[in-house]
Nucleic acid binder design. Sequence first.
DNA 1: ATCGTTGCCGGGAACGATTGCGTAAATAAA
DNA 2: TTTATTTACGCAATCGTTCCCGGCAACGAT
Lengths: 343, 343
Amino acid sequence: MKFEAVTIKDIAKALGLSTSTVSRALRDSYEISPETKKLVLEYAEKINYHPNPIALSLKERRSRSIGVIVSEIANSFFSQAIDGIESIAYNNGYNVIISQTRESQEREQINLNYLTSRSVDGLIISVSAETSDFSFIKDIISRGMPVVFFDRVVPDIDTHKVVVDNYRGAFDATRHLLESGYRRIAAVTNSETLSITQDRMAGYRAALAEEGIAEEPGYIRSCPHGGLVLAEVNTAVEGLLAMETKPDAILALSDKLTTGCLRILKNKGLQVPRDMGLIGFSNSDLTELIDPPLSIIKQPALEMGEVAMNSLLQLLNSKQPVTEFNTHKLAPQLIIRTSSVRA
Amino acid sequence: MKFEAVTIKDIAKALGLSTSTVSRALRDSYEISPETKKLVLEYAEKINYHPNPIALSLKERRSRSIGVIVSEIANSFFSQAIDGIESIAYNNGYNVIISQTRESQEREQINLNYLTSRSVDGLIISVSAETSDFSFIKDIISRGMPVVFFDRVVPDIDTHKVVVDNYRGAFDATRHLLESGYRRIAAVTNSETLSITQDRMAGYRAALAEEGIAEEPGYIRSCPHGGLVLAEVNTAVEGLLAMETKPDAILALSDKLTTGCLRILKNKGLQVPRDMGLIGFSNSDLTELIDPPLSIIKQPALEMGEVAMNSLLQLLNSKQPVTEFNTHKLAPQLIIRTSSVRA
DNA sequence: ATCGTTGCCGGGAACGATTGCGTAAATAAA
DNA sequence: TTTATTTACGCAATCGTTCCCGGCAACGAT
């Protein structure tokens, strides 16, 4: 079945006018007499005419749609960010096409290829955990595609970026753990190639160093798929628990890792925060209801989406190539609850 | 900045061929000699040619993209469903354009208008809570637009639908509450115009009736925005608690209502499940970590999204107009934990 | 009476691709 | 040699719009 649309030709034929005249009348051109305009407008209204956006896209060489690439839609952080992106896009007449990579480099590549060849006007990307080769992204940017990174950025690609102050988030959380009396603080991390992982780890290390605590390599466990596969988290936590001097607290460096760690600790019968302190990045709005109420570092996901879309709009609307790029660094929110406070 | 693309014309000019020949060579037509094909293919590869999908869309009158309309992206149920939709769409070469209504009829209308006029090939819709006039949707369907409803459907519109067995979900949950010893069971509901609300309420009533319990109208409180505004939930719960014979358990009929109710009960210092039993629909994957572990009715959201997209594909791929429509009714999953079980 | 203006509108190319039809050359059949 | 057939390609229309040109009245000015 096809959705039959009425075209400008139908109007022209019905009214005995040329398509040019109808087009001009609809666009309220000064070259058309008021009577003709009225005639056309009324008839167009009557038969429910809407200009074919595809024809327009072809003519204007832009589609008024943008692509968003994330690893997983069903993740609080990303869905909140997409919410923000969609809101701003909606207000500016842009459609949002989403696609997910599931942390796979291959899918990222395919999606990127697909979206750019489908003529999106711009892209908002949070790179996949698996991706190590960014030449493709670099390439499409150099060919003139407006791109903004959010959350997981690529440091050596020059374009607008929107991130949270990951260093500070991890630093503050670690310091909080230290102030709570924890000393042997482990970090369960996402893929180490990710910018966010590196920044957060830097904050973690800095906080430890400040306190004069030597870094214990065994306390750092990475989950390449960032909690997407729970088995990885399980291995990480078990590894930690099997050490001769176990850590007394865990800093989890991403959404799914935080709740994943808690899940596993509970399964193993450990008491949080007594046996093991826990704090982590999370954007779930249920963390306060959890047992124990989770201390978290929260990212302003909605706002990040909004800022990202606004940055993209700036690129889209600029006449000459943009050469000055900025990275918006938003403040994370440290919310101390029970899971990180020793009774 | 514009993304400069290479066209078939560039190839034709460079190779001294006509565009038709190039087009045919690229499509591997039998009319083209192997040598010419090889020439064209190699050159196309070299200059990184990709057919312009917009031009194709114009010609073929289809865009290979579908629209998804939900009330809110950042909602576990919907984001999981979108995940499913996107997966199937991806495998079939379709792009997914999402837009949210935030439960507003006006935004639903605008989005619908926008998406159809932007030539999506089909739509997957979960109607907004506010919407009472479905003539517009009816209209676009009658004009030939393939549409499938999911979750919140419109009973008197004939097209493919994907729902969960809401009646059974609510029925089983209510019966479970009864079996746990609760007698005065309240229902906190979403907008009453919603199909899901009606079905779930029917299940609730049937379970009560089966037990010979008369329905108490004061025990039914509706939140027109389904938990999107917490104040509504607050009013509902407070109303319940202010009654002379308070209910002893609450059945919450949607995602945000379930956690919303718990939040408010906790705020008021009530003990769940001792002072008040609680069970509700929810798709959060954190409910087991909550204090108390929440009993929930869970919808197979991912699967619903997949089934919805597959149904839409069936409509999209059928040559003649489809007249036989089916509604897939998937089984909800009742997960009993602590919040609904009296100690 | 002629020349510019102005107002109003139509013809047709263009955006990038596909495709039905026509046709020249080469080959096969008569 | 003539005719038929095949091979391999080009022309031009098409999808729905926009927009550059150009044209034709009518009108005022000279």
